[in-house]
Nucleic acid binder design. Structure first.
Lengths: 108, 108
DNA sequence: GCATGATATAAAGATAATCTATATATCACA
DNA sequence: TGTGATATATAGATTATCTTTATATCATGC
């Protein structure tokens, strides 16, 4: 499975939040938890490396802003948008196949 | 996320196949690949440890059969069936929430 | 003024799980 | 008799997350 399912989902979650507008790490973590009714969540030790990874790959762009308290605001890039759309489509196909199999079994 | 998503899915895949009838490891791997159109698959280095784990937890029962070529046929247990149904239901809820978030973003 | 808890980011180290590779062995077919 | 498919197992490398710790600001109550 070329790259871990969880890893792909985590990255898509971050991109999904940023599709709504710029946000910094802490906000992203809160938004994911809120919008999925707590079914998905991030530990910060998980989230920040993901943000750095996505930034390194050019899918998001971070900018330090505000003085005093350091906050890094992330925005999704055009490349990130393309990857987000492709990724969600692919994941949806995968889960259709998965639940088709589960459903077939339920019926049996 | 109490236990890895991938781990849970992998276990559910095995249980789903065994809900259809007894099978040995190699058959399970083939069936998963076939029934999900190659979207999910197992390396044997992944599958056999999972089978041993599930057996240890009483979700499946394995029995050596046939002489000469060693083949271990697995059957799902009653406990495994209960866990399978609960697990698929839970996973479905989780994915409904996930795709609801993705969809909301698509619309934005 | 100061302690506390929420906000905010980062990175090192432990843990968990899969993947890769290797080993072993049978069977069918050419 | 050699090759490729069938069949299981395990050690070791890799990957990714989780836990923990460190640092720092801000608001609130005492």
């Amino acid at each position: 499975m070329r790259t871990t399912l969880s890893k792909r989902i985590n990255e898509l979650l971050v991109l999904a939040i940023l599709e709504h507008g710029p946000a910094h790490g802490y906000q992203i973590a809160l938004a994911v938890e809120e919008w999925t009714d707590g079914l998905f969540s991030f530990q910060h030790g998980t989230l920040y490396p993901i943000l750095h990874r996505l930034e390194g790959e050019g899918q998001v762009r971070g900018e330090w802003c505000g003085e005093g308290r350091r906050r890094k605001t992330y925005r999704i890039t055009e490349s990130g948008r393309v990857i987000f759309r492709a990724g969600t489509t692919e994941l949806e196909e995968q889960f259709r196949a998965l639940f088709a199999l589960f459903g077939r079994t339920h019926a049996a």
